[in-house]
Design a binder for these strands. Structure first.
Length: 427
RNA sequence: GGAGAGGUGGCAGAGUGGCUUAAUGCGCGGGUUUGCUAAACCCGUGAGCUGUCAAAGGCUCCGCAGGUUCAAAUCCUGUCCUCUCCGCCA
């Protein structure tokens, strides 16, 4: 969330930002509630101060009479304190609710627009979009033909949106993780394998909403836990309520996790096959930085994503995400959209990675701070996340881009040593 | 899963209802002494919020959340975590 003082001091900028992001947030209400809160807070502290002083006098009182008299005063003061505190608590949760609806500020260069139609294409990957002298087919058909993906059994076992990977698809899944991890480790990212479940407080801290109608999250009944939608959640939780020394920054992590998403309401041709599923495996990058480091870290993550997909010989474009398409915590977001020849009628770009700079918005809610040597106090970290490789979507791109007329698939050179073959053919 | 012990500042560690303004030590910062280093000595040193030109001051925080009380690190309840033992288990 945004800093309260910042909102008060920059009401117009915050309102304009909400408009540009097409978010409805009652900033005026926030301002008036916050003013009310401050006044109540002062009142409360005044009463507490008096009550504390009275309590102290009782301990030092000379005789029982005096003590009893003071006790009565103390009792009354505490009653008033309770009354004010109850009011304040109510106000506090109201303010918090409004504050949560206010999104992060936006990078001045981010394109302004309501949805992904306004995303601004920036660059293209090294691999050109290929032309085929045959009718390219989609990964669902390829997967069926080569016995790589079993959607029917997935549906029978766990419902629509689940699938079995089989045969060489399993090797590809592992190969992609290994490949990405090697690049990441070389770039000083600390590899982790994260919990697939997390406490709801961590979900909330990261900006995910565990329950409610539009939740993307599966929660575990009877517990305080949810299945994670991305390793961003446990990795963000690494420094929840922690303070790190500034010298240690930036801290680069990557995490392998399963990702679980309810995808309520999403369906249709664009979500066919592996594109929108309830479970997939992902290697995620996550970084904690000083404020002045976050922009360059964002570029670094973007470059890593490009490197990974250039290495896989997949054509893609980089887009700068439009204001209306940004998630609440993101200050700026870049997506890689891979060319998927089997998508749509004659191929379409489909999102394969995404990297966000959340500045201090996420850290404030997580209460993740840093301390600078020689300076008093602590400040909020900046957090960034980025997809290194989301297996399901990467598989779509690989299968569809590297397909041959006979429905075989060429294994990208960088993966051959893991898969143990150069081409995947019908058995 | 069962039984027990515990969680206090950056670290160690005292504190069983009011004299706690959380002792003391280490660490850290500054200073004095001093060929240099070391040592000794002196001073300072938790966080958040509020307040101010700056301060002083006030409030909150002893894992977390509640409760009892005029008053809670201290008593009670719940919860999380750690350790020991037992059980189960890849």
């Amino acid at each position: 969330m945004l800093d309260r003082k910042f909102i008060i001091d920059n009401v117009d900028a915050v309102k304009l930002n909400c408009e540009r992001r097409f978010v409805r947030a009652d900033v005026d209400r926030f301002v008036s509630l916050e003013a009310e809160r401050k006044q109540l807070q002062n009142e409360l502290e005044q009463l507490q101060s008096e009550a504390n002083a009275t309590a102290k006098q009782i301990g030092q009182a000379a005789n029982a009479e005096e003590r009893d008299a003071k006790k009565e005063i103390g009792r009354q003061l505490r009653e008033q304190v309770d009354t004010v505190r109850t009011k304040l608590d109510g106000l506090e949760s109201e303010i918090d609710a409004v504050q949560r609806t206010i999104p992060n500020m936006t990078h001045p260069s981010a394109p302004i627009g309501a949805d992904d139609q306004s995303n601004l294409p920036l660059t293209n990957g090294k691999t050109p979009v290929p032309t085929y002298d045959f009718k390219a087919i989609d990964h669902v058909e390829l997967g069926e033909s080569l016995d790589l993906i079993d959607f029917e059994s997935g549906a029978r076992v766990a419902g629509a949106g689940f699938y079995f990977l089989k045969n060489d698809a399993v090797l590809l899944e592992l190969a992609l993780q290994q490949y990405a991890l090697e690049l990441l480790i070389a770039a000083k990212f600390i590899p982790t394998s994260t919990p697939d479940l997390a406490r709801n407080s961590i979900l909330q801290g990261t900006g995910y909403i565990p329950r409610g109608n539009e939740t993307q999250i599966y929660s575990i009944d009877g517990t305080d836990l949810s299945l994670v939608a991305t390793a961003e959640i446990p990795l963000g939780g690494l420094f929840a309520n922690q303070t790190v020394d500034a010298e240690q920054l930036p801290l680069r992590y990557c995490g392998i996790s399963h990702c679980f998403r309810t995808e309520a309401g999403a369906a249709g041709r664009a979500s066919r096959g592996l594109y929108r599923v309830h479970q997939f495996t992902k290697v995620e990058m996550f970084a904690f930085t000083l404020p002045e480091q976050s922009e360059s870290m964002h570029q670094e993550m973007l470059e890593m994503e490009c490197k990974i997909f250039d290495g896989l010989e997949i054509p893609y474009r980089v887009v700068d995400t439009a204001t209306g398409d940004l998630g609440g915590p993101a200050y700026r977001k870049f997506d890689l959209e891979a060319w998927m020849p089997g998508r749509g009628n004659n191929g379409e770009y489909g999102e394969v990675t995404s990297t966000s700079n959340c500045t201090d918005y996420q850290a404030r809610r997580l209460n993740a701070r840093y301390r600078t040597k020689g300076e008093k106090g602590t400040k909020f970290l900046h957090t960034l996340n980025g997809t290194a490789i989301a297996i399901s979507r990467a598989l779509i791109a690989i299968m569809e881009i590297h397909q041959n007329q006979d429905k075989s698939i060429n294994v990208p050179k960088v993966l051959q040593k893991y898969v143990g073959k150069k081409i995947i053919r019908k058995l």
